[in-house]
């Protein structure tokens, strides 16, 4: 039991030191997802409130090379047979949702989004309730230029094609003119700069 007595660090002391190291690492990084602890987390790769419109981004509009296509006046969102300009989108019924962006890399932050319910658009386009849909980005290449949406997510009243964040139009980095935002969905699937929604 006390074989280590007098020989430096005891077994118990060693375990406590390792446990303390794990604890310090946790506290020093957890603030990237537990907002109130962010002041204690100098090692957190992200801060939940730092970014355009006080929300972090992983991929910027410049990184996705959509700076021109996203603001092109000929932009149309295509949903099935519908083709909608930014003005058309703004004139449709708007809904609000408070939803987190939760990145696979471990950070998360809550945004106040508003826009058009995806299910409203699917209904307008005559897409059936049990269909999976694919949301496609203006972004040309990359691992996450499209995402698939299950019927449960697509029909959820909280799943939006958001036009606004925090009461302002979406910043380019957040997916202007419109982006997908849905509940309980990894950030990489919250497709930005949406140009097309197709039924699968």
């Amino acid at each position: 039991m006390s074989e280590a007595a007098g020989r430096g660090l005891s077994r118990r002391g060693f375990l406590n030191a390792v446990g303390a190291a794990a604890g310090v690492i946790t506290v020093a990084t957890i603030g990237e997802t537990v907002g109130p602890l962010s002041r204690l987390s100098p090692l957190a790769p992200r801060r939940a409130s730092v970014g355009p419109q006080h929300l972090p981004v992983n991929k910027s509009g410049a990184g996705a090379r959509v700076e021109q296509s996203a603001v092109d006046p000929t932009y149309r969102l295509v949903v099935g047979s519908l083709s909608l300009s930014v003005g058309d989108l703004q004139s449709l019924p708007q809904h609000a949702a408070i939803l987190p962006i939760a990145c696979v890399e471990g950070w998360s932050a809550v945004g106040h989004w508003s826009g058009i319910r995806l299910r409203d658009l699917l209904d307008r386009a005559g897409i059936d309730h049990d269909r999976w849909v694919r949301v496609e980005s203006l972004e040309r290449s990359g691992l996450y230029v499209t995402s698939e949406v299950s019927p449960t997510h697509a029909r959820d009243p909280l799943t939006l094609l958001a036009l606004r964040l925090g009461g302002e139009p979406l910043a380019l980095d957040h997916g202007y003119p419109c982006r997908l935002i849905g509940p309980n969905r990894p950030g990489v699937l919250q497709t930005k700069w949406v140009r097309r929604v197709v039924a699968l």
Binding site: T33, A102, G182, P183, N184
Partner: peptide, 11 residues
Amino acid sequence: SRPVGLYRFTQ
């Protein structure tokens, strides 16, 4: 799609 923040917690 529920709970809304489950993925946020698990990830």
